[in-house]
């Protein structure tokens, strides 16, 4: 599904990602962990197409296509979804309308008929139950006045409605209380399928207690320093990132 080869990314002359190699197959869920400043969020945003990041070299193949050649909106319509670490507030733009516009952009891209407001409302009222948000949030401007947890639930609501093939969750667990974390984990788990892949980007192992990863990668200083199974996450929880960073330093 996703193959990343030797990806280098610089921001304003400073190299943030220094050669990432990663393969994710359909049906898999990979966790990308790492300390602050390791390049996790840059990695997520580059995959979604944020143009402020400069890709200096490397290749990203997504379902046989060169992902880096696609605009952010094309990536989305092709099934890539990024759950934002900091979801954006959009004053005056109704949450339901925003999501309907997104769904219809995708449908149009696939040559399907657009969904009308009535059918969409019925659909989204079903989906919003899964993230345990009140229906009142549907009529509010996107993320306006939402708490941190509500914004993250809203991101997951968007994911469940857009039904991406590749979902990238950027620190979706940060700042959540345990109930919100469980709800979001349930949303993700119920959404896992053999056709779908996930990249769960996180600082903490906590969310991985509820979402079982197939693989865990540790991003340190712009490189994947270590990869392993779920047990790697537990090791990190116990020992922190220091030991991997220490091992990495001589190589730099």
């Amino acid at each position: 599904m996703l193959e990343i080869k030797n990806l280098h990314v610089s921001v304003e002359g400073t190299e943030i990602l220094k050669g990432i190699d990663l393969r994710v197959k359909a049906g898999e869920l990979h966790a990308v962990m790492g300390p602050n400043g390791s390049g996790k969020s840059t990695f997520a945003q580059v995959l979604a197409g944020r143009d402020t990041y400069g890709i200096t070299t490397g290749e990203v193949i997504y379902n046989g296509q060169n992902l880096l050649e696609l605009t952010p909106e094309e990536r989305s319509r092709e099934g890539v979804f990024l759950s934002f670490q900091y979801p954006v507030v959009i004053p005056g733009v109704n949450n339901t309308y925003f999501l309907q516009a997104a769904v219809n952009a995708q449908r149009k891209h696939r040559g399907e008929e657009e969904i009308d407001a009535v059918d969409f409302l019925a659909l989204i009222k079903e989906k919003i139950k899964l993230v345990q948000l009140d229906e009142g949030f549907l009529n509010r401007p996107v993320n306006e006045g939402f708490s941190g947890g509500e914004k993250k639930r809203n991101e997951i609501l968007q994911m469940l409605t857009l039904e991406p093939k590749l979902a990238i969750l950027d620190e979706t667990d940060s700042g959540l209380d345990i109930d919100a974390l469980k709800t979001i984990a349930e949303g993700v788990n119920g959404f896992r399928s053999p056709e779908r892949a996930f990249l769960v980007i996180t600082h903490y192992q906590r969310i991985l207690n509820y979402i079982e990863p197939d693989k865990v990668h540790v991003l340190v200083n712009g490189r994947i320093a270590r990869s392993g199974g779920p047990e790697l996450a537990h090791e990190l929880e116990e020992k922190g990132y220091g030991w991997i960073q220490a091992e990495e330093t001589p190589n730099n």
């Binding site: 197409g49 952010p72 319509r77 934002f84 954006v88 959009i90 516009a101 997104a102 401007p141 857009l162």
Partner: peptide, 29 residues
């Protein structure tokens, strides 16, 4: 705001539609 624009784009909404929605949203206040 470019970050806001990127949020629209990342949801598959094209730049022109996003721009129109943002401007319209601004008037709603």
């Amino acid at each position: 705001d470019e970050e806001t624009m990127f949020y629209f784009l990342s949801r598959g909404i094209d730049r022109e539609t996003a721009r129109r929605l943002l401007i319209h949203g601004f008037t709603q206040e």
